[in-house]
């Protein structure tokens, strides 16, 4: 059986959970296996995971699971693997999933690959690929152990509705005591966090100063995108640090990345060049970013961006 760790936030499933279930369903189809989801903590509509291909949803409810501790979660997931006899575990490639992957690999003596972005090749063994060297190469791995663990990058595939709600079965697992005390959790409300965002509008030093960011926010608002920035912009405190993308910031993989007044230094590209479509707006036609772009606009951002925002607004209006 294939087990999907379905991550949720206070009972709300993340899109990554639906993606992972869809992924598990497809692997199950290719290997003649079945796919089940695992939910830790309380989530009222756990059965909806069935729509994306989980034939069953296992749930462990315990007050101790309300806060995340990789040690406790790993113990519970390992027990669930044993009880269900699952041989493949799919985790989201999120801060939670990444903190669990290594623990479970060590605990279950399992082969693991982090950051997988495509379905495995299963005709002869089990092989998966992932991008390495800042997207400058792709490595293929063979997983040779009985139990296998992978984490799936966000936006690697679209969630697909294939069926109905699935039955939810409570698993009884002893939840060990945590040695980590969570004191506070702060999350920006109402915006999709960068690692999960499908649309990202990003700006750099070409903006001249923080007072000019209104046009960036307006563009982002119109299309429902999350905002990002280059490193010097965050270093100068023009923008908050959690917006910094690149080698030393966050690596993202949205469907659309619009880069405005960013030169496209290799360290910046390292975090964004896996984006599906890249649009670059820059007044310098020699800017290196154009080489990594799908669409380019050579022009003054202070004129081009408001025009683009208007064009999107018109498009949205016409398309409901």
């Amino acid at each position: 059986m294939i087990l999907i760790f379905a991550e949720h936030q206070k009972g709300q499933f993340k899109k990554a959970a639906f993606e992972a279930v869809t992924y598990g369903y497809k692997v199950a189809q290719a290997t003649g296996s079945s796919c089940a989801a695992l939910v830790l903590g309380s989530a009222s509509d756990a059965g909806t995971l069935g729509k994306y291909g989980a034939s069953k949803v296992f749930q462990v409810e315990d007050a101790a699971l309300e806060n995340f501790d990789s040690q406790v979660y790993a113990a519970v997931i390992a027990a669930a693997m044993q009880q269900t006899g699952a041989k493949l575990l799919v985790l989201p490639h999120s801060s939670t999933g990444k903190s669990l992957l290594g623990r479970l690999a060590a605990r279950l003596n399992a082969a693991s690959v982090a950051g997988v972005n495509a379905l495995p090749v299963v005709d002869n063994g089990f092989r998966v690929k992932r991008p390495v060297f800042s997207g400058k190469a792709i490595a293929e791995y063979e997983l040779k152990s009985d139990i296998k663990i992978i984490s799936l990058t966000g936006n690697a595939l679209q969630p697909q509705v294939t069926g109905q709600d699935a039955p939810v079965e409570a698993l009884s697992v002893t939840v060990p005591a945590s040695r980590v005390k969570v004191k506070s959790v702060e999350r920006a409300e109402g915006i999709v966090p960068l690692p999960e965002a499908e649309l990202v509008v990003s700006a750099g030093r070409g903006m001249k100063g923080p007072e000019n960011w209104g046009i960036i926010e307006e563009l982002a608002n119109v299309i429902g995108a999350t905002t990002a920035c280059s490193r010097p912009v965050a270093d100068a405190d023009w923008r908050p640090h959690h917006e910094h993308v690149g080698q030393t910031g966050i690596a993202i993989r949205p469907n659309l990345y619009i880069a405005i007044g960013i030169s496209g230094a290799i360290q910046h590209l390292a975090g964004v060049n896996s984006s599906k479509t890249i649009v670059v707006i820059n007044k310098d036609k020699e800017a290196p970013f154009f080489k990594a772009a799908d669409y380019g606009v050579e022009g003054d951002l202070f004129e081009v961006v408001p025009r683009l925002t208007e064009a999107f607004r018109k498009f949205k209006g016409g398309n409901g």
Binding site: I138, E142, A292, D294, Y295
Partner: peptide
Amino acid sequence: LAVTVSYELPKEKSAVKM
């Protein structure tokens, strides 16, 4: 348990459309 089988280079990006 997990071994690298091979590497490949990503497909060349097609030229930017201005």
